[in-house]
Structures are given as structure tokens and as C-alpha cells.
Design a protein around this nucleic acid. Sequence first.
DNA 1: TTGACATATTCCCATATAGGCATGTAACGT
DNA 2: ACGTTACATGCCTATATGGGAATATGTCAA
Lengths: 128, 128
Amino acid sequence: MARASTTSDAFNAVAEPRRREILTYLAGTERPVGEIVSALGLEQPSVSKHLRVLRNVGLVRMRCHGRQKLYRTNAEAIRPLHDWAATFERYWQHQLNRVKELAESTVHQSSADSNAAPKPTPNPKEKR
Amino acid sequence: MARASTTSDAFNAVAEPRRREILTYLAGTERPVGEIVSALGLEQPSVSKHLRVLRNVGLVRMRCHGRQKLYRTNAEAIRPLHDWAATFERYWQHQLNRVKELAESTVHQSSADSNAAPKPTPNPKEKR
DNA sequence: TTGACATATTCCCATATAGGCATGTAACGT
DNA sequence: ACGTTACATGCCTATATGGGAATATGTCAA
């Protein structure tokens, strides 16, 4: 199987950085496609496609006004994301405490540290 | 271009439902791979691959213990997601109010509702 | 060393992108 | 009707994926 469709849920839809930008831009206000294009500096067809994905998962709403279509973010649809992430809130608070304690007790210790993760490598070249 | 790598950031990594399950399962506790496998009912190679992705973006930490490797969720890495989503908090509150007011004032009359579907756009003769 | 156990990695492949470009379609002004 | 404006959609392609199966790597125990 390949990766799940971008339209399968909000999580997949917002994985794309541009779509996140669009959602941010459309938060609280309606905007026609053209303004999104010029504001974010993207190609018009690209914006239309992203909007289609966002609409499919309910992340944006659309309304026709003359020859233009006004889009706006449907914040409600972002809540599942927020709620899921909030589940971990208590844990990162714990971790902060742990880190703090650790820092206080090992202020001078050198780094023969074998548990540190192998670097949060952002973009491994990934061979195939 | 294809879709961005799953390892490009936390957003892409958590787009996969199984990886979210793993993160939830590993929240607050360390677990060896084998337990994740049996707990979530996935194939072992599959779990290993998902853990690799999660590790690459710093969403999990790993520690060796004998012949097994103990993983745990690094909640800190979920904060960016939470923070981004929280940006929209005020908007969904607004929306709730709007919906409420609307429901109160228009108990009898409701016209074409152009929001939900990715359907062919209905064609209201909007004038504004 | 050998064998069993715990994980990781590789190979293969059907599938779904996202971007660039061209074209289709709908609404407007004249 | 015609041209223009505002978007949407179709086509093409390089690329990355996730699952399954097989295999490799690493660690302990006897």
C-alpha cells in the first residue's frame, strides 16, 4: 500500500506546509483564490488543488461571490488535531521537569551519553 | 514533486494513523518493540519501520536494554503540532458563537447550505 | 561456537501524490 | 455574441510511500 490519501483526514491534509499556510491565511477571514495566490506566491492551479484537498476534509468552506469564490478556514475541523496533541500535554510537562532535574544534577558531566537519540535527523537521504 | 517525506517533520510523521497509535501507546512509558507489536497487532517489520520514522523526527526516543530496545514517546516533539493547532482556538470559539446566534435567530428559515461537501458547487445567484 | 531471541533492513510494487503546463468552465462587462 | 476575468481540472512525471516476505544484525545463554 502507498501512503494514505491526503484527503483521508485532517492529519494528512495539514501535513503539507502550503496547506497549513493557506489555513493560517484564511483564518478568520474570507478571501478569493486570487488573493491567496498573490499573498502566498504560489501558482494558481496549485492553490486550487490545495483548496480542493482542504475542502474535501472540511478544513475550509467556500462561498460563491460573482465570479470569484471566497474561502475561509473552518477552524472546527482543526480541533481533532488539537485534541489529539493535547493528549500529550501532561507528558511534555513531566519531561520538562525531568530535563530540569537532570540539568541541575549533571551540570558538568561530559558527554559520554549513550541514550541521546541518534540526532533528530530531519532529512535522511533515504536510499532505496 | 511527490509528497514531502514522512520524515520531513512531525506533521508528516503523524499523518499515518498507526504512528499515532504508537505514540499514544508509548506516551509516558518505555516499551520494547515486541510489546508494541503484540499490543497493536502489527507486523514486527512494520513497527520497526514506523519507529524509524518517528525517531527520525524526534517523536520517540530509544534506549538499549539487553537485546531489546526500549522506546518512549518524546512528547516535546508534539508541541509544534499542538501550538499550530492552538492558533485556531479563538476562531472555533467564534464559530461556535456564530452558529449559536444563527440557530437562535433563524429557527424557521434555512436556505441553501453551501458548506459541507466537495460537491459540484451549487449556484446561488449571490449579490452583495 | 552455536542457537535462540529481539529488532532492523532490504527488495519489490501498487498507489498517490505535488508541481508545471495547458486547457476547460463559469460569470461579468460591453 | 465576444473577450476577459477568476477558478478548476486534466495530463504527465519524478518521487516517496507502506505492506509483505525474506534476510541481516545484534545480544544473550549454554
